[in-house]
Design a protein around this nucleic acid. Structure first.
Length: 441
RNA sequence: GCGACUGUAGCUCAGCGGUAGAGCCCUCGGUUGUGGUCCGAGUUGUCGCGGGUUCGAACCCCGUCAGUCGCCCCA
């Protein structure tokens, strides 16, 4: 055995939490799971790794993918290269294609797992993080109503998460067919079109004036550039979808879909969900509706809940047409912000609700028996580990944030006592029998 | 991948050329069946790493690694 001590340090971008934070994180997962299931989504879990070729099936992927290797891999070993998945949508599409015959469609599933991206970490940006996804995939046709269900479910979750009550968030929705259709009508090269999208994507960050400047610079060789820039800006900033004149069939279809989705979200509070044609959402597999969600007081923190519709992602793995739509909570990004802003209730460092103390050696057995009875009655119980001074035992309960302390009787035929640690003024409750104490009473 | 800034005790930081410090935390005591306050005592360091300048470097210089924040990209 070596005595060498490796100084412990956290690896940047790979978050880990203290017990009191983890407890709240688990509550968040419970809450999210409950709402997902209330809409009938079933859970699946896919492996952390996929074959690299599966992850790249949709062509070039910009995302930084971690590949994994065996330490003792021999030269010439013929194995598919394995890689950690960078999202849950691609593995889900593979899963759906693979188990096509055993699934019932429309297939509604949720997934809450870690994903990995080798990007440079920053506030709210990790290399290992949780996503909570819901997706629906159907055969041949997927009703547009699902495009409206996605943000509705997420709004319900996000506004009710413990600690999120005061946060002002907004889900923004667009349809890529609108902007892509419009840009197609401009007859510019593919390269220029991509650059236009990249500039529009930053509109909130850099402002309309800077956007206009950059677009003019980009398009300056086109004789109509002033008009084009004006039109792009007014399109991406419009508040009235119905007044937009479609330039072609694709744009018309996108507008119609977007208007339909917005119509079906009218039951949500004013400003919860808005149509925003400047949403670009990268350049990967989305083909129609796209979502992103921001904190209104800090939109640059990044999206905490994004997704969209993909017409043919599963088609990379099976010769069928399997359109889908999905949305994903950037769980770790969202959670880390609430931790940083101290919005979480971190009193408890343990799930234990009651600490059974051991006032003296003689009571050790009685204390252990009592703890067992309380557990059988549904309480979460920790038994103190030694017959030490009571002040020390109470201090322990306090430090761990255990709300109740239990005293076994000090004499034959005496009463059990329950002490409330948070409300010192409340007198101790007496019980003849530990079973008289009901959980949550 | 590019740029800026920062690395000193478990944590937050002071010291900026002359023997390494404070607060918090932790441990014990004041308090042998009822905690949080207060008081006293105590433990804690390759000053990120390597090289250079200097009689002397935590401090100045070079390199390197790590972290934070921007850019890019994204949850």
């Amino acid at each position: 055995m070596s005595n060498k001590i490796y100084k412990p340090k956290s690896i940047s971008g790979f978050p880990e939490w203290l017990p009191e934070v983890r407890l709240v994180e688990q509550q968040w997962f419970d809450h999210i799971r409950r709402v997902f299931e209330s809409y009938g989504y079933c859970n699946i879990e896919t492996p952390s790794v996929e074959e690299l070729d599966v992850l790249r099936a949709k062509g070039e992927v910009d995302k930084e993918i971690y590949v994994i290797d065996r330490l003792h891999k021999e030269e010439g070993d013929k194995e598919g290269r394995l890689a950690l998945h960078f999202d849950q949508t691609v593995p889900f599409a593979r899963y759906t294609a693979q188990h096509f015959n055993d699934l019932v469609f429309p297939f509604k599933r949720y997934q809450m797992q870690r994903v990995w991206r080798g990007e440079r970490p920053q506030a709210g940006r990790f290399r290992e993080f949780y996503q909570c996804d819901i997706d629906v995939i159907n055969v041949d046709n997927l009703p547009i109503s699902f495009d409206a269900e996605m943000p509705a479910v997420m709004w319900e979750i996000l506004t009710a998460l413990p600690g999120m009550q005061d946060e002002k968030i907004q889900i923004r929705i667009s349809n890529r067919k609108v902007l892509l259709g419009y840009i197609e009508s401009l007859n510019v090269s593919e390269n220029i079109a991509a650059q236009i999208l990249a500039i529009i994507d930053k509109i909130e960050k850099i402002g309309a004036i800077e956007t206009s400047k950059q677009l003019n610079e980009l398009l300056k060789n086109n004789p109509l550039h002033a008009l084009m820039v004006d039109n792009i800006l007014s399109l991406t900033q419009t508040n009235d979808l119905k007044s937009v004149q479609p330039e072609n069939e694709q744009m018309k279809e996108g507008l119609h879909e977007l208007i339909t989705v917005m119509d079906r979200l009218k039951h949500l509070p004013e400003g919860a969900v808005v149509a925003d044609l400047s949403i670009v959402r990268g350049l990967d597999y989305y083909t129609g509706t796209v979502y992103e969600t921001v904190f209104l007081d800090d939109p640059n923190y990044g999206s905490i809940c994004s997704g969209g519709r993909y017409d043919d992602l599963a088609g990379s793995y099976i010769n069928k047409h399997l359109p889908g739509v999905g949305i994903s909570i950037g769980f770790s990004r969202l959670f880390a912000r609430m931790v940083d802003k101290q919005k979480l209730d971190l009193k408890a460092k343990t799930p234990a609700q009651v600490l059974v103390v051991i006032p003296s050696e003689e009571q050790q057995v009685a204390a252990a028996e009592t703890a067992q009875i309380l557990r059988k009655n549904g309480h979460k119980v920790e038994l103190y580990h030694a017959a030490q001074k009571l002040g020390k035992q109470l201090g322990y309960a306090e430090k761990k944030g255990i709300p109740f302390v239990w005293f076994v009787p000090s004499e034959k035929d005496g009463m059990h006592q329950l002490k409330d640690m948070y409300n010192r003024d409340i007198p101790n409750k007496d019980f003849k029998d530990p079973s008289e104490w009901k959980a949550n009473a």
